[in-house]
Amino acid sequence: MKKVLVTGANGVIGSAVREHLADRYELSALDILPGDFPTHVADIADLAAIQPAFEGMDAVVHLAASISVETPWPDILKNNIIGTYNVYEAAKQAGVAAVVFASSNHAVGMFEVTNSPAIYATDHPLVIDQHADIRPDSYYGVSKAYGEAMGRYYVENHGLRVCCLRIGSVRPDDDPTSEAAGASSGWLPLTREQTLERLQATWLSQRDCAQLISRCLDAEHIPFGIYYGISDNQRQFWSLANAREELGYAPEDSAARR
């Protein structure tokens, strides 16, 4: 059974990984805060402090980060740029084979921003794939693009295997129609209705998210890849084609069918 370290294990996605994948992998946890499970408590901005957690690991799922699109630059620098370097570097130094990097659709978010809200309609033709130009919509998106390029550097120069997941909308309540979602558009000037319409397209259920991460952990034939992560939603403006073909990702949920 592969030994897998999850950074940010206490977060929404970390919790989904622990719930859905604990019987497939020997999971261990790293988080800045202690949880109700055994955790190596350390800040990813501190390389020396996180290094012991990487010893003996086969793979790392790197979720720890500032996750708000509106995170200011100083926090992005510390948590997402230095933090991600530290995770790759600790993985390399410990001889870890693979890193699954939680990237974000916000690495290419300007395609959405410039086509919003029309892009959310089920009959809108635009689909953005992994070859699209890097066009971040925020410092957060910038940092995720940095992390993808750094992953490629570690793959081609240090033999790490890296899958970058441009994760859609994973919700704490796992509900693509939730009233709470409509209240939190935040980064885009959307109405409540538009925010809910967006979520119909960008939703990634917790179990589909866990499946996607699992497919990456198992994809030993793939040295480097960039994949979008959404459920089998009726409207999909991020392409799942390469995740389906290369990883065998087969989402079981759909926002529209809920």
């Binding site: 300007m110 070859h131 130009d133 890097i134 971040p136 910038v142 390029a149 750094m150 490629r152 120069n157």
Partner: peptide, 28 residues
């Protein structure tokens, strides 16, 4: 120029990062 980033060094990565940040400053 629009082929993917494939840096050979932290230096190359940092310059790719500068391009990415430049794109953000241009768009935003």
């Amino acid at each position: 120029p629009d082929d993917p980033f494939r840096p050979d060094s932290f230096y190359g990565w940092s310059k790719a990062s500068g391009e990415t940040l430049g794109r953000y400053y241009s768009d935003a």
